[in-house]
């Protein structure tokens, strides 16, 4: 059970990062502005900043591997893909 609890913070971390990436996604913003002019997003990230954020999704693999939590690695990888899809499907009024 411990190794499952150890994976949960990393999954929450990935949720926050993916949420941030979606929120600052220029293409998503461009499309949302086309259909909804009321959307006002002040929070903007540079391309380099977004790249860094995206790469940081790999960071949790290091502690998980160090703890020999291989089940956690698989769970984290699966969770990131599911979270990514779920966040993308959210309406632009939410993200």
């Amino acid at each position: 059970m411990n190794h499952l609890i150890m994976t949960l913070p990393f999954i929450m971390y990935s949720l926050a990062i993916v949420f941030l990436l979606a929120h600052t996604d220029p293409r998503r913003r461009q499309l949302s502005n086309k259909t909804d002019n009321t959307t006002n997003r002040k929070f903007v990230l540079s391309v380099a900043g977004r790249k860094l954020l995206a790469w940081s999704l790999i960071l949790p693999f290091i502690p998980l591997a160090a703890m020999a939590n291989y089940a956690g690695i698989l769970m984290y990888a699966g969770a990131v893909t599911v979270i990514g899809w779920a966040v993308s499907e959210l309406p632009t009024s939410v993200v």
């Binding site: 698989l74 769970m75 699966g78 893909t81």
Partner: peptide, 14 residues
């Protein structure tokens, strides 16, 4: 089936 219900929930989502 490697981490009980938790991994199964993620696999169902996949």
């Amino acid at each position: 089936t490697f981490a009980g219900l938790w991994s199964k929930i993620i696999w169902i989502s996949l």
